[in-house]
């Protein structure tokens, strides 16, 4: 459903991504792993249209989407959860959820406020609070919930576990597992390996702007070299 084909990306004159390729099939969770500065966030920003691949091709449901602006991709069905969470501080929790919400194709699988509050009960209690009054974990939940309210077919998450308490990370893993069961395709950038192993189907390990390993959870778990060279701290 998403095919990223040999993309290169630059910040100004510095060449960050060197021919990164990956694909996501419907209902699949694909993880991007690697150390700080490996190019994971840059990859996700390029997929989301914030950076232009030059050169490189990105196809989504058979359509060439490289060069489309972020808002057009959001409307095509991308749900984006950025690293800094991007909560709108002066909007209430409820407004954060509804302001850019898009209706789904109907049916039971479509995300609405009641279903969101069922998935994240903590947000229901806080719905009149302003965005800046939330804790880090609540902000992360809100950011995921807000992306779901767009009724996306592909969810892009950039380090959702970063800086959160283990119990909150566990809750987020459970949410992601449930989304996976419902058939949502997910690209997950992570540094937390256990979280990635818990939800991921396939993994790409990045180093210096290139993908240096691709494989299933079982393959990665067995590959001591990759774990030691590119992932252990």
């Amino acid at each position: 459903m998403l095919e990223v084909d040999a993309i290169n990306a630059y910040y100004g004159d510095s060449h960050i991504l060197h021919g990164v390729s990956l694909s996501v099939r419907p209902g699949e969770v694909v993880c991007l792993l690697g150390r700080n500065g490996a190019g994971k966030t840059t990859t996700i920003l390029t997929i989301m249209g914030y950076l232009q691949p030059r050169p490189g091709r990105i196809r989504y449901k058979g359509r060439d989407i490289a060069g489309l602006p972020p808002y057009a991709l959001a409307r095509l069905g991308f749900g984006f959860v950025p690293q800094e969470r991007g909560i709108f501080p002066s909007l209430t929790v409820r407004e954060n959820l509804t302001v850019f919400a898009r209706t789904g194709r109907g049916g039971a699988g479509s995300w609405t406020l009641p279903r969101i509050f069922e998935l994240f009960p903590a947000l229901q209690a806080r719905q009149r609070n302003l965005g800046f009054q939330l804790s880090g974990g609540e902000q992360q939940m809100l950011s995921i919930a807000r992306a779901l309210m767009l009724n996306p077919s592909l969810l892009l998450l950039d380090e959702p576990s970063e800086g959160l308490a283990p119990i909150i990370v566990q809750q987020i893993i459970e949410v992601l597992l449930r989304l996976k069961r419902e058939g949502l395709a997910i690209v997950l950038v992570e540094q937390n390996l256990s979280a990635a192993f818990a939800v991921g189907d396939r993994h790409h390990v990045m180093n210096k702007g290139e993908i240096c390993f691709s494989g299933s959870t079982a393959q990665l778990e067995r590959d001591d070299f990759v774990l030691r060279e590119y992932l252990s701290v």
């Binding site: 808002y71 409307r75 909007l91 302001v99 850019f100």
Partner: peptide
């Protein structure tokens, strides 16, 4: 609300479908 979201964080709003 869209305008306020844009004031808060125009880049994020764009990623959620706002034609900034």
């Amino acid at each position: 609300a869209m305008v306020r979201a844009g004031v808060d964080n125009a880049i994020m709003a764009a990623g959620l479908g706002a034609n900034i």
